[in-house]
Computed example of a mutant assay.
Amino acid sequence: MSVEIWDCVTRAPFGEQASVLTIIRDGDRFTGSNVADIGELPVIDGRIEGDRLLWKMPTEKPMRMTLVGKAVVDGDRLTGTVTMGAFGKAEMTGVRRG
């Protein structure tokens, strides 16, 4: 297993949200968390497909839903989207710590 920490920014329709995404890799799977000012979301069902990351984050705020993240890793940077149910998609970027 290995741990990666990413400093991320998600650009949602209602504003930018900085967060710290922690990925705990186990082969081609991962778990972890995404911590922002609004709280901590668990990362579940994480999959690694080459340079692509796919994961889910259940939340209760502002309503119960499951956010779906998809990103491409290029060295120490990631770019992708978070699908937020009825709120649409938000762009997400990140820089790996360390």
Rank of each mutant, 00 (worst) to 15 (best):
S33M: 05
A71R: 08
F14P: 09
E60N: 15
D76I: 01
K89W: 01
V20Q: 14
W6L: 07
R11A: 06
D76S: 13
R25P: 00
C8L: 03
T83G: 04
T59A: 12
T79I: 04
A90S: 14
A36P: 01
L54Q: 06
R96H: 10
D37L: 07
T10G: 04
R52T: 11
R77A: 08
M65D: 14
I23K: 11
M65V: 06
I24V: 14
L78A: 07
E4F: 03
W55Q: 05
M1F: 00
T31H: 10
R52P: 09
P58C: 04
V3E: 14
A71T: 09
V82N: 15
E16L: 09
V3Y: 04
M57G: 13
P13H: 05
D45K: 14
P58H: 05
G27R: 00
N34A: 04
K56M: 06
S33R: 09
V9P: 01
E91Y: 00
V20D: 01
G88H: 08
T83E: 12
I23W: 04
P58A: 06
A90Q: 11
V73P: 15
F14G: 10
R64L: 07
T79C: 08
R47G: 02
G32L: 04
L54V: 08
D28L: 05
D45R: 15
A71P: 14
I5D: 02
T81L: 06
E49R: 13
E91S: 15
M65Y: 04
F14N: 15
T10A: 09
G46W: 00
K61T: 08
D74E: 09
P58W: 03
L53I: 03
I24K: 10
S33F: 07
D7A: 06
T66E: 15
F30D: 05
D45G: 14
R96T: 03
E4R: 12
T66D: 12
L53W: 13
R11F: 01
M1A: 07
R96D: 03
R97Y: 04
T66N: 12
D76G: 07
V95I: 13
D51E: 13
P42R: 14
S2M: 10
L54W: 03
V43R: 07
G75L: 11
G27Q: 02
E40W: 08
V73K: 13
M63A: 15
G98W: 05
T66Q: 12
D28S: 10
T59K: 12
R97Q: 11
G15E: 09
V82P: 15
D51H: 11
I44G: 06
A90L: 09
V3M: 08
E60M: 03
D28N: 14
W55C: 10
L78K: 08
T31E: 13
T31R: 13
L53T: 06
V20I: 12
R47H: 10
I38P: 03
G32T: 03
A90R: 10
G88S: 14
L67E: 09
